[in-house]
Design a protein around this nucleic acid. Structure first.
Lengths: 346, 346
DNA sequence: ACACAGGGCTAAATCGATTGAGCGTTTTTT
DNA sequence: AAAAAACGCTCAATCGATTTAGCCCTGTGT
């Protein structure tokens, strides 16, 4: 039950393993192997359904045809969807994907990197956590292609694919203002990473532009590692004490917790509390009222990530590719203040 | 920037690579290596932060410490959550996970298996598609541990971890009946695989038990590969023509499409059309009205899968472990017919 | 007729770890 | 005191593919 090896082919063709290797790697011309022999080898390889042993090849070449995908949470809608696109795209290039979730925990992230390193993945797709600068630089040093996603590290010159978080938050917040909301709060994560900072900045800039003073008490930052109950509890407290009439939730899971919290207070989404969340989700689309959100172009994010990575794997480019894709503001009912909020199904 | 190898340690310790290998593999005693040398080697290995090259090791031993995870759709809530638990659990045993989605397409599944095979994964977690009997048997033949999930193949004796689909559907349907619904339909997939068959059977048995005749026109089967729009279109058509007063949706995505469809018709979920879906989802929990569903114990599913696989990897057992976990019926508002359906937030 | 240039292919080293066989020394057995 | 066993460790082959160096042969130029 062993696999077919290059030796088996060599034996059948009456040539050396070397020749077989040359032919199967498309170096027949370059290595001046005759067409006769070439064809014969190809035919036999086909007949035996030869598949190169990736371990052996990897051992020799250092290439494993494997990518490492480090996300914040593979169970999260956004990351799971990206993971799917990434898998699909990677597959087109003959790559497989090893994945792992950081839970936004730097130690876990470092552990993952460690494992992926000694598993010798060829390239990395990383949702970086705090203080990962050194690790990323190290990967650059050893010439391992890296593409950051969802966020990047301001002090590290690297490839990345993100969305325009500032713009997304700005539009979302502006929308809240133009819809007539006055006391607009933001609920975000403890993270002081760039994507959150930008969402915060976009939020603040939108308020400023519309002449609304930025009120620090209307800001709430919650740690990722808190559980659902604690999250909703905190959000409820926030809503009660601030009496905000609209909230911008800076990630999808905060949006979900937020909906839960607002409803548990008996407040009407839209009419009593305007809601916008970052990221789209089936829940946002189908909720009553439906939830306005900043939607990320997931397909394109995934495609571009792999795209950049493949370019690097083929021949490292001198300059970093830094793609900032445009998010879309999905206008829905959760930001309608005026009309009373009649559920669709009534 | 090369990694530390066993040779480097050997050199520093002034012993042969063989000795180092023995010590690092815990065979010091068995191979009668002195404590002195053992400790020295261990110390050096630690100092140099030696990490074995998995490729080399795999090439020699045939073990890659990698698992293959084949799911229907990694972007699907259920599978993504299982994937996360699987990754966590596998990690505890030093295993990494390669994943892939079948899209319920046998050819894609076969392709994935093929790739995983020549990547020499040590064990397989498979959500089988139609007609995969031969492939699974083949894996058994070559003594590769396999655990099926979500569904199993009736004609193949293999390990699996599933939920009691019959029971779940039975309870869900019984619940609909006792809530006063009379014309109960089921929307399921084209798949004639066991999990769907059992859900169908559980559905039918519940009707029968309550003296409701099974009406074939109240059954709708939709192909996985259809897109969202086509799905909702079909469901709308079904609802219009059958005038069903309740529907059991056999999977989470069908439930989601179903909610969309019912609402687009202006019908009230619960009051006009009772709804139960298989699988839980944030959307079901937070929808207005909230959606009654059959919830699968995801944590335990993931844990057991890895558990069974690890047992196999250590020493193949003679008998197949076939775990059927109990799902939970989450009672929510979508199956309340009597009271008019007031959204929570009103 | 002799050097030289391809042409067509192969031997052997290599990647890093594992492992069966075995070698010299000391200790125990009888 | 000779034989057997126990010690403590190493040699070299092996996994499968890649790759460098180079061998032998034929044909060309001078």
């Amino acid at each position: 039950m062993k696999g077919i090896s290059i030796k088996d082919i060599a034996k059948q063709a009456g040539v050396s393993p070397t020749t077989v290797s040359f032919v199967l790697n498309g170096k027949a011309k370059e290595k001046r192997i005759s067409d006769q022999v070439s064809k014969k080898i190809l035919k036999i390889a086909n007949k035996l359904k030869y598949k190169p042993n990736q371990l052996a090849r990897g051992l020799r070449t250092g290439k494993t045809k494997t990518l490492g995908l480090i996300v914040e949470d593979i169970a999260n809608n956004f990351f799971a969807n990206v993971a799917k696109v990434v898998e699909d795209e990677a597959d087109k290039h003959g790559y497989k994907v090893l994945y792992g979730s950081t839970e936004d925990n730097s130690d876990k992230a470092r552990g993952l990197l460690e494992v992926l390193k000694y598993r010798q993945v060829d390239g990395y797709i990383i949702t970086p956590t705090k203080n990962m600068e050194k690790e990323i630089e190290l990967l650059k040093m050893v010439r391992k292609p890296v593409v950051l996603m969802d966020r990047y590290l301001p002090n590290v010159d690297s490839h990345y694919v993100v969305v325009d978080n500032y713009q997304g938050a700005f539009e979302a917040t502006s929308h809240l203002v133009t819809q007539g909301y006055k006391k607009i709060g933001i609920i975000t994560t403890m993270s002081d990473q760039v994507q959150m900072k930008q969402r915060m900045d976009g939020f603040a800039a939108a308020l400023k532009k519309h002449g609304i003073p930025f009120n620090k008490t209307l800001t709430k930052r919650l740690p990722f590692e808190m559980d659902r109950a604690a999250h909703t509890q905190e959000i409820v407290k926030f809503l009660k004490t601030t009496k905000a009439d609209a909230v911008f939730f800076a990630t999808n899971y905060l949006g979900i917790y937020g909906i839960e919290s607002i409803r548990s207070l008996g407040l009407r989404i839209g009419a009593d509390v305007g809601v916008v969340s970052f990221d789209d989700h089936d829940l946002f689309r189908l909720h009553s009222p439906s939830i306005t959100c900043v939607s990320q172009p997931i397909e394109e994010i995934g495609r571009q990530i792999v795209n950049v990575l493949m370019k690097e794997l083929n021949h490292a480019s001198a300059t970093s590719q830094q793609l900032v894709l445009k998010p879309t503001l999905e206008l829905r009912q959760s930001t309608i203040k005026e009309t009373s909020n009649v559920p669709q199904q009534a």
